[in-house]
Computed example of a mutant assay.
Amino acid sequence: MISRRTLLGGLAAGAATAAVAGRAIGAPTARAAGTLPLHLVNKSGAYANGSVWIYILGNDGTQQVRVTPDGKLAPVAVADNGPDGFTDYAIPLAATGTTTVQLPPMSGRIYTSLGAKLKIKAVADGNGKPALAYPAGWVASDPNYDVLHDCAEFTYNSGGMFCNTTMVDMFSVPLALHLTGSGDQTTGTLKDGARARIFSEVKAAAGFDRLVVDDRRVIAPGHGLDSGLFAADYFAPAVDAAWSAYAGKDLTVTTNAGAFTGRVSGDQLTFTGPQGRGARSAAPAGPIAFGKPSTRDVLFCDGVLAAPNDGVRGPLAAVLGAALNRSTLATHPAQPVTDPAAFYQQQVTNHYARVMHGATQDGKAYGFAFDDVAGFASYVEDHAPKELTLTLTPF
């Protein structure tokens, strides 16, 4: 499986707006032979087709691009801003039924907006190249804060289609993906009535209540932290408990590189390895140490838990981050934990992610950026794709 963090890693460098550390749209590594039918289906039950707009925005490997209503790839241009200062890259839905757009090879996001169009500004990035100020619904001053919107993410290239629904930034519009090709896969579908339950259950979780914005969206706790809506030290007790636990016993983390053994000394959790028959021949040059992560590090997979695409430190950071979000690190000395019944059982846990997983039919969601650890993310891929369907599912 291609890691979502590898797949979706480059937008922040190109956009002059509030960006998400370590998770945005990267460029496809190779171009696919042709376009892929993307079907857009509105089953929201809350908005008619005429009040729903789609935006397909991203990167083709050389520049930021958007898809036109007729399925063409067009470069982003500052001149596209209209008299109101914003672009109009909206793709309207057909009056009734399914809307089909031919999706060119690219990496990007499929935004949905309901009730009003998105206000997306074309800007010059730090290198003077055209870029987009993407919607940031978790920022009260963002021009799209009052617009009901959400997105799915994808990369389509010669290797296939790789896509996911996401709640890493926020949750607002229930979306489902159906990918057909060599297989037939669906992810992201909510249980009946789950949108309302997400809002009520997050609001009921201690410390998470201020993340709920009316009936418009639920903001992810990392963005809530940056906005003063979530405690900056929330995960400190869980981190302290884990560091205390492994001061006197080993923590084993198994990745594709093999089994690593960790022990705490002072504030450093230091791993040696890999060891065992599953280890790759190329061992790390020396011990790999992690200081105590902050709550922000845990939620954003950043700072101490930043995960480089190096095959060694990156996977270790991902497993540690997932274990802290799922509250299994202190209690399970063999990581990663693969039994979801063990997740979110402690008082200090990522209740936002817990609620998202409980709301989906397949139990999978992207509630935090390391949610792909052990395969619990709302992610599907196919190396011989034929069609992709994005459905706005019932509210």
Rank of each mutant, 00 (worst) to 15 (best):
T187K: 00
K386G: 04
A341R: 04
L11T: 03
M106S: 01
L324P: 02
D250Y: 08
H149A: 10
A77H: 09
A136Y: 05
G266M: 14
L114H: 08
T96N: 14
F395K: 04
N42E: 10
D362Y: 15
V218L: 13
T29E: 14
G97N: 09
P92E: 07
T165L: 03
F343Q: 00
T98H: 05
V123Q: 15
A257L: 08
S113Q: 12
A74E: 15
G286A: 15
V355G: 04
T166I: 12
I2D: 06
P284S: 14
K203V: 02
R23Q: 04
A131K: 02
A116F: 08
F368G: 04
A204R: 15
R4I: 02
L73C: 10
R296I: 00
L11Y: 02
Y352D: 13
T189L: 12
Q64W: 07
P237C: 11
L211R: 00
G128Y: 08
T331Y: 02
A176E: 15
P83K: 04
D169F: 02
A283D: 10
R109T: 04
S141V: 13
G266L: 10
V218F: 09
Q275R: 13
S113H: 06
F86C: 11
G181Y: 01
T187Q: 09
V76Q: 08
R4K: 04
P274S: 13
A124L: 15
V123L: 15
V123Y: 09
S141I: 13
G228D: 11
L229I: 12
T96G: 04
A238H: 02
P287R: 09
I288Q: 10
N325L: 10
L390G: 00
R31V: 14
F290H: 08
L225N: 02
M170Q: 12
A241G: 05
V319H: 00
A196F: 10
G314T: 02
H39I: 03
V78M: 03
L175C: 07
S113G: 06
G58F: 00
V123H: 12
A95D: 12
P315L: 04
F290V: 05
Q102V: 01
R216V: 10
T96H: 14
K386H: 05
G224W: 07
V218P: 07
A285H: 11
L251N: 03
H149C: 12
P333C: 06
D267I: 09
G278Q: 08
L57A: 03
A15H: 13
A74K: 12
N144P: 10
A322S: 14
